Computed example of a mutant assay.
Amino acid sequence: MAEQAVQRMVVSADPEACFAVVADVERYPAWVADVKAVQVESRDEAGRPAVVAFRAAAFGRSTSYRLRYDYSGAPERLAWSQLDGDLTSRMDGSYTFRPLPEGGTEVTYSLEVALRVPLPGFIKRRAQSRIVHAALAELKSRVESQITA
């Protein structure tokens, strides 16, 4: 059964800057702590990564999975769905970017994960919450550091 987590965070940058960072998946190993390697397998007609293979740290070991990216909501939303994975049977999610009247962007990260290995629900929820929180914190740090650089 898939578990879903949703969290929001305000980033001190415009939505376009936030979108640009998350859409640049080839640079993830430089700023996403758990992502160890990225390989773009195919690109869409605009040259953006469409199918991407990842190697990441998860549950104290290495995991591999492939995602298909959906840019149909760009630049307000970037979504993905898992094609295959060794530890996960589903890892679908999205980033949504909403400009705030006072400046900055509210970033919503949604992630739905189903593991191939049975684990108690509270452990899955805790891990998923950690993943979502870390993803938002790392995104905020990356985007805001690029603005001030």
Rank of each mutant, 00 (worst) to 15 (best):
T63D: 15
R27N: 09
V132F: 04
S64P: 07
S72A: 15
V107L: 08
P15T: 01
V21N: 01
F122K: 15
A134E: 13
V25P: 03
Y71M: 10
E26S: 06
G104Y: 03
K36G: 00
A79H: 04
S64T: 15
P15F: 00
W80L: 05
L139Q: 09
Q39A: 11
L136H: 03
V132A: 13
V132P: 04
I131V: 15
R116A: 11
Y71S: 04
E112D: 06
L78G: 03
R48S: 07
A79G: 05
K36A: 04
D84P: 09
S72H: 13
A74H: 02
R27D: 10
V107I: 07
P75E: 09
T96Q: 14
L100G: 11
S129Q: 10
D14R: 11
Y71C: 05
R98A: 11
A20K: 02
E106V: 01
P49S: 06
V52D: 11
A20D: 06
V113M: 11
F59S: 15
A17V: 00
W31D: 01
K124L: 13
S64H: 15
A37V: 03
P99H: 03
G73V: 12
Y69H: 14
A56I: 13
D92Y: 00
R68S: 10
A30D: 08
E26Q: 09
G60P: 08
W31G: 01
P49N: 09
T63K: 13
R43E: 08
Y28G: 02
A23K: 10
L139P: 04
R126N: 12
G60K: 12
L83F: 02
D86N: 13
R61Q: 15
S42H: 02
A74I: 04
V25I: 09
L119P: 06
V40W: 10
S42D: 09
G60F: 08
R126P: 06
S72D: 15
L111V: 02
L87P: 01
R77E: 13
G121N: 13
R55S: 14
V38G: 02
A53W: 14
R130T: 01
P101D: 07
W31N: 00
A114K: 13
S110I: 08
A20S: 05
A137H: 11
R68H: 12
Q128V: 03
T108Y: 07
G103S: 07
V51E: 14
T108L: 10
E112Y: 02
